[in-house]
Amino acid sequence: MPSTAVRPVRIVVAKVGLDGHDRGVKVVARALRDAGYEVIYTGLRQTPEMVVDAALQEDAQVIGLSIHSGAHMTLFPAVVEELKRRKATDIIVFGGGIIPDDDITALKKRGVEKIFTPGTPLQDIVDWLRKRFPDSPAK
């Protein structure tokens, strides 16, 4: 039974841009579900505007992006900027995919909270969320 006191964490996950590598995002979505989170998967070929719009309608606290196309340096910041434009900077952005270490450092400076690269154990992702949302680890 979900607690009525805490706000359950809802996470919108998406593949942005022209990138068909959806295996990782699906595996992560399943792991998050099994950890008790509500995951709203919006599918492939999303634009930053679509993802943010979905997050607002779904009252999500988190946006999770998965990018393997090499376009991460434009797409991640575009989502962060769109959140600013929609006055929704309380929604955090994290994600994963094929992203070099140097780029991760740069992306963090631009407002992306956390990035997981290939080979990350799923439990690490769950643990990170639990720490990030200690009051409502799950439903």
């Binding site: 039974m1 979900p2 979505a29 399943r30 998050l32 579900r33 099994d34 950890a35 008790g36 989170y37 509500e38 995951v39 709203i40 998967y41 919006t42 599918g43 999303q46 505007e49 679509m50 719009d53 979905a54 779904e58 799950a138 439903k139």
Partner: peptide, 22 residues
């Protein structure tokens, strides 16, 4: 449906409706 075990869920209905997102 939510998972009967964790209470979590993957809600995927939106995928088919994303063209109305904006």
């Amino acid at each position: 449906p939510n998972s009967p075990f964790s209470g979590g869920a993957i809600l995927g209905d939106r995928i088919r409706m994303q063209r109305h997102a904006l």
